[in-house]
């Protein structure tokens, strides 16, 4: 039963329609969660006794940082599926994930640096996590650049998938090496993201925001995947029928 559904989902026209029906629901839910999370986080939650109001940027920064890594792993996993089972849809999902992931990584970097200003008095500190995040951004940009440089899109997707898998093997290494480098060169800094006992009123909005970001990723990725499918399958019958129905 599940396998049949999975197989059906793999067919582009079915996926196109399925994703099309899913997007408004998920998008609506995402919006509700986003508004709730921001309200609870920015207004209801108490201010931090050390950092005052400026800590509230975690409601953007932390979920973005989580998403940046999560999406990379999803991308590599889809890439592996695409390479092993030659599943077109997995290629499309992997490739559609890359720009969303890169944007979250960028957002995590920008918010981290904005936070750095009141915390450290400077926009950029070679903090271990920010540095890892910067390198992750380069990994994303590499995948995107490689995909756009290769003309044949199937070939491009397979090349980008390999790169994503190589990247995923390297991420722990990069992370570990950057931590090592950071403790040696900077001396142990007080890591601002570790809050050993976080107030429930602070934690709940954070989790809501994380969920909202995850939904945002899914919605955005599905929209991109639909566009990608249309452009790839532009010569196939189902796209022609779709265009016909749209005109008529």
């Amino acid at each position: 039963m599940f396998m049949r559904w999975f197989h059906e989902l793999g067919s582009p026209p079915y996926f196109y329609r399925f994703a099309g029906r899913l997007i408004p629901w998920l998008g609506g839910l995402c919006l509700v969660l986003l508004v709730t999370g921001l309200y609870l986080g920015l207004i209801v939650a108490p201010s931090d006794y050390q950092q005052g109001e400026s800590y509230r940027i975690i409601y953007i920064h932390v979920p973005s940082a989580w998403m940046s890594l999560f999406i990379y792993v999803v991308m590599a996993a889809c890439g592996a599926i695409a390479l092993i089972w030659r599943m077109k849809l997995a290629e499309v999902v992997a490739i559609s994930s890359a720009p969303v992931g890169a944007s979250f990584t960028f957002l995590a970097l920008v918010t981290g640096s904005l936070w750095g200003k009141p915390m450290w008095g400077t926009w950029w500190v070679w903090d271990a996590r920010l540095t890892s995040e910067l390198l992750l951004l380069f990994l994303y940009l590499g995948v995107i650049a490689l995909y756009s440089a290769i003309e044949d899109k199937r070939q491009a997707a397979r090349a980008a998938s390999i790169l994503a898998i190589v990247g995923v093997v390297n991420i722990p290494l990069i992370h570990y090496s950057v931590e090592w480098w950071n403790t040696l060169h900077q001396g142990p800094t007080v890591t601002k993201f570790d809050a050993p006992s976080i107030d429930v009123r602070m934690l709940v909005p954070l989790l809501i925001m994380a969920l909202a970001f995850k939904l945002f990723y899914i919605v955005n990725m599905l929209m991109r995947a639909r566009c990608e499918l249309l452009s790839r399958e532009r010569n196939s019958r189902w796209v022609a029928e779709l265009a016909e129905a749209d005109h008529g």
Binding site: G142, A145, A149, I162, N170, I174, V178
Partner: peptide
């Protein structure tokens, strides 16, 4: 990955240099 590209050189540096970071650090 880039051998088939006419201007592979710049992309190559983008692909490879981040992966070189752990070696550089240690």
């Amino acid at each position: 990955l880039t051998v088939g590209l006419r201007r592979g050189g710049i992309i190559l540096s983008l692909l490879v240099l981040p992966l070189y970071v752990p070696v550089l650090i240690f």
